[in-house]
Simulated assay, not measured.
Amino acid sequence: MSEAALKLDAVALNAVLAKAFPEAGAHLPEVVEAEPGRVLMRQAFATRALRPGGLISGPTQMAMADTAAYALVLAHIGEVAMAVTTSLTIHFLRGAKPGDLYAEGALLKLGRLIATADVLIWSESRERACAKATVAYAIP
């Protein structure tokens, strides 16, 4: 992907996400980096994300994967609110220990109607990923 392929940077993506999900407030994941073909997001740790056993819950990780894919797609197509998830497949690799949650989205394909991304999720370190997701988005 060329530099021209990126339509929204991290600052613009955070503004778009805040506008799209105003009810999330301070709990909204933050886009830390955005570059052609890739985004990195961080979700600040909150005890409400824990499941019994003291690990970060699967639904929290799935939401993070979906949000990272959404941000990644918007980074490349611009502010298109009605880009929607068409599929999300996730593999949980190990328990996610309490701490900030990170998601790195990588664009696999950006078509006219569908975008597909891989998302790696971790809390301890990238080398100890807790989940890997493949997410597809329909582009209106």
Score class of each variant (00 low, 15 high):
residue 1 M to V: 10
residue 5 A to S: 15
residue 6 L to A: 04
residue 7 K to M: 13
residue 8 L to M: 11
residue 8 L to H: 03
residue 8 L to E: 15
residue 8 L to A: 04
residue 9 D to P: 07
residue 11 V to H: 02
residue 11 V to M: 01
residue 13 L to N: 10
residue 14 N to F: 08
residue 15 A to W: 03
residue 20 A to Q: 11
residue 20 A to V: 10
residue 20 A to I: 12
residue 20 A to Y: 12
residue 21 F to L: 15
residue 23 E to H: 14
residue 23 E to V: 12
residue 23 E to P: 02
residue 23 E to Y: 14
residue 23 E to F: 14
residue 24 A to H: 14
residue 24 A to V: 08
residue 24 A to L: 12
residue 26 A to E: 15
residue 27 H to A: 14
residue 28 L to Y: 07
residue 29 P to N: 03
residue 29 P to W: 03
residue 33 E to G: 04
residue 33 E to W: 05
residue 34 A to T: 01
residue 37 G to C: 12
residue 38 R to C: 01
residue 38 R to V: 04
residue 39 V to W: 09
residue 39 V to C: 13
residue 40 L to F: 02
residue 40 L to E: 04
residue 41 M to G: 03
residue 43 Q to K: 14
residue 44 A to Q: 07
residue 45 F to C: 03
residue 45 F to Y: 14
residue 46 A to S: 09
residue 48 R to N: 08
residue 49 A to P: 07
residue 49 A to I: 03
residue 49 A to N: 10
residue 51 R to T: 06
residue 51 R to S: 07
residue 51 R to I: 01
residue 52 P to D: 13
residue 52 P to H: 03
residue 53 G to V: 00
residue 53 G to C: 01
residue 57 S to V: 00
residue 58 G to V: 12
residue 59 P to F: 14
residue 64 M to I: 05
residue 64 M to F: 02
residue 66 D to G: 12
residue 66 D to N: 15
residue 66 D to A: 13
residue 68 A to Q: 09
residue 70 Y to C: 11
residue 72 L to I: 01
residue 72 L to Q: 00
residue 72 L to Y: 07
residue 73 V to M: 02
residue 75 A to P: 11
residue 75 A to H: 06
residue 75 A to D: 15
residue 76 H to A: 10
residue 77 I to V: 15
residue 78 G to H: 05
residue 79 E to G: 03
residue 79 E to Q: 13
residue 80 V to A: 08
residue 80 V to C: 13
residue 82 M to Q: 13
residue 82 M to R: 11
residue 82 M to E: 14
residue 82 M to F: 05
residue 83 A to T: 12
residue 83 A to S: 14
residue 87 S to M: 05
residue 87 S to H: 09
residue 87 S to W: 00
residue 88 L to G: 03
residue 88 L to N: 08
residue 89 T to S: 14
residue 93 L to G: 02
residue 93 L to P: 02
residue 94 R to Q: 12
residue 95 G to V: 08
residue 96 A to D: 06
residue 101 L to Q: 03
residue 103 A to D: 02
residue 104 E to A: 08
residue 105 G to Y: 08
residue 107 L to K: 08
residue 108 L to Y: 07
residue 113 L to Q: 15
residue 114 I to A: 06
residue 116 T to G: 07
residue 116 T to Q: 09
residue 117 A to C: 14
residue 117 A to P: 08
residue 119 V to C: 03
residue 121 I to R: 04
residue 123 S to I: 02
residue 124 E to N: 02
residue 127 E to H: 15
residue 129 A to N: 02
residue 129 A to W: 06
residue 130 C to I: 09
residue 130 C to P: 10
residue 131 A to W: 06
residue 131 A to L: 03
residue 132 K to R: 13
residue 133 A to S: 08
residue 135 V to W: 07
residue 138 A to C: 04
